[in-house]
Design a protein around this nucleic acid. Structure first.
Lengths: 105, 105
DNA sequence: TCCATTGTTAAACAATTATTAAAATGTCAG
DNA sequence: CTGACATTTTAATAATTGTTTAACAATGGA
């Protein structure tokens, strides 16, 4: 189970347009990830800004990174996001989760 | 489908300890919700601070409210959170979502 | 109507955050 | 070793955010 502070950190990391776009791009990419420069090119973000955001996302546990030569590959780590969602819906509706599912007004 | 700005707003609304606690309390409570004062008492938050956070959460679409006499009841609205989660996992792993599910390192 | 209760709003301040530019680190090819 | 490339770090600035206090509505019982 995640601690509240971890969940807040993950939510805060995603609550910024550039970082949300970075994360989504890497979610779509899957486990192989993308090099920092490829992300910068796709999203038109300056290297320094991107590095700052990578650090925020990594520190929140949302990204993994590995070095390959001169490149650093970043990939989404789904564990934290799954934990975040679980935390939010925990004990939903006092144990009667029907009311929380998609498809009810 | 939610727009990125809506998702960012919802994430930002939840990315704060007090608001996360408010939201979780109301998620657990379910559709009936709780009066503002009951939330204040449970979470030991001053009325003004609570009102500020209610506004942020409501503006993000995460809470519904209804007035009943002198009381205002707030309840979690699950539509936005479900949309938020859907947005985050959309096109996960390039259409091979096995890698995103809970239970993989 | 009067008054206590419930909740919101406004103003002010401290603290945090995003971005840029510049300098620094690390890595490989020749 | 040297030079070019990929990314990070630092420092500085502008903008946003959370909390408090005090004052302000709105509701309903006596």
């Amino acid at each position: 189970m995640m601690k509240p502070a971890q969940v807040v950190m993950a939510l805060a990391a995603l609550a910024q347009p550039t970082r949300l776009a970075i994360y989504r791009l890497l979610v779509a990419r899957g486990p192989d990830g993308l090099a920092a420069g490829q992300v910068a090119e796709k999203l038109k973000v300056s290297p320094a800004t991107l590095s700052f955001h990578f650090k925020t996302l990594s520190h929140a546990g949302l990204l993994d990174s590995r070095q390959d030569g001169r490149f650093i590959y970043y990939a989404a780590n789904f564990t934290v996001m799954n934990g975040m969602v679980a935390y939010l819906t925990e004990n939903c509706c006092g144990g009667n989760p029907d009311a929380c599912k998609p498809g009810n007004k």
